[in-house]
Design a protein around this nucleic acid. Structure first.
Length: 382
DNA sequence: TTCCGGACGC
DNA sequence: GCGTCCGGAA
């Protein structure tokens, strides 16, 4: 079950079940919530599970201020779960229009229909049962259950992750599986035995107001005295950002095949990179390892060049790279001279292009640059 | 312009 | 596990 994390002991009682339990943590959150938290939001001060559910769905990825007018309009038109379940989808979507993430609205509608059909129109109180309904995940299920029924269930949304990452000095990207598992573990262990509603609301309010991403108000925070990030001056770097995924690297060889003043160009497929442009013929066999063995070279030339003429000479040119938004392309260019070229027959995508007209050709910038370098160097022409 | 995010689909 | 949705904030 529990996995020891080498070199990162959380506490003296690392291997004891429930070792994160800390009533002083929840006490601080609950006390702060009662004194300074939000108490007058339209979905507060009710135990109507329908209203609480609706607010929680609307609040996914959406801030309080944006939700309020939608929430109120929605309730006027759909005052209860049965009305919502019976309404046309079109009508539901119309009342969601502008809130974004429209799959939430579709799930909302389906969820209402399931609550009516399978639960007699009453939202279940068990978070695991709630989380089975469309649009309700683990955290949303816990929030609904806690607010509507006082259930002792842990939430873990983006705001709470930020609070926990800072207070407990949790390194690593909170979206990753191992870090998220640790955060859930904390969230469950820290739950108070009473006042779950105030505690849950307090965590949300802390994350949404004081413990914001940009300029957290640590001076007013009830957890400042126990905040690991504050103590180590790492508030700005926790929680860690999503690591940029390494840009994939791709390799190709480009063949500068010439016959006198002509160079062989090839039309790119319409879709994909450089779609529809002219470019150079490529040979994937000619990339690694370096140096390319002679037999690979012969093979590639036979395959890629033989249909166009008889090879007189072949020499590697200076490799270069080109960075796209989503990958980095490493190009190994080769200069190939033909003894004479053959007529193009059936090779509709190929063309013998006049080297002195290359400036006019619809070529990708790095290819044009390569060709101009080749043809601007008189010793490379013949 | 870049970053961020619950739930869900792949 | 990773991309998508979509709008707001940094």
């Amino acid at each position: 079950m529990k996995r020891a994390v080498p070199g990162r002991r959380e506490s003296a009682a690392e291997n004891t079940a429930g070792h994160f339990a800390d009533p002083t943590f929840s006490d601080a959150v609950i006390h702060w919530q009662k004194q300074h938290g939000r108490h007058a939001l339209p979905w507060q001060n009710t135990r109507d599970a329908y209203r609480i559910w609706l607010s929680e769905i609307m609040l996914q990825q959406t801030q309080v201020a944006a939700v309020i007018p939608y929430y109120q309009r929605f309730l006027v038109r759909f005052p209860d779960v049965t009305t919502l379940a019976d309404a046309p989808a079109e009508d539901v979507m119309a009342h969601w229009s502008g809130l974004g993430y429209y799959s939430r609205a579709r799930n909302l509608h389906q969820c209402a229909q399931r609550v009516v059909a399978q639960h007699g129109g009453t939202f279940p109180s068990d978070p695991d049962v709630l989380a089975d309904l469309p649009g309700i995940g683990r955290s949303t299920a816990a929030a609904i259950s806690a607010f509507a029924y006082g259930t002792r269930a842990a939430i873990l949304d983006g705001n709470v992750k930020r609070v926990f990452a800072r207070v407990f000095g949790i390194d690593g990207y909170p979206g990753s599986k191992p870090i998220e598992d640790r955060l859930w573990e904390r969230a469950v262990a820290l739950l108070p035995d009473r006042d779950v509603e105030a505690y849950t609301q307090g965590l949300m309010d802390l994350g949404a107001t004081l413990c914001s991403r940009g300029r957290p108000a640590c001076g007013s925070c009830p957890l400042a005295n126990r905040c690991a990030a504050l103590a180590t001056d790492r508030v700005a770097e926790l929680p860690m950002r999503k690591p940029k995924k390494a840009v994939p690297h791709k390799q190709t060889a480009m063949l500068v095949v010439t016959d006198g003043d002509r160079v062989l160009l090839e039309q790119r497929p319409d879709s994909g990179i450089w779609g529809g442009l002219l470019s150079l013929p490529e040979a994937e066999q000619l990339v690694l390892p370096e140096p390319v063995p002679q037999h690979r070279l012969d093979e590639a030339l036979a395959h890629a060049v033989a249909p166009f003429g008889v090879v007189a000479s072949c020499e590697p040119l200076q490799p270069f790279s080109h960075v796209f938004t989503h990958f980095k392309l490493h190009v190994s260019p080769y200069r190939i001279r033909l003894a004479h070229r053959l007529e193009l027959a059936g090779q509709m995508r190929h063309v013998w292009y006049r080297a002195d007209r290359l400036l006019d050709a619809p070529l990708p910038a790095p290819v044009k640059k390569l060709l101009l370098a080749v043809f601007d160097a008189p010793d490379l022409l013949r």
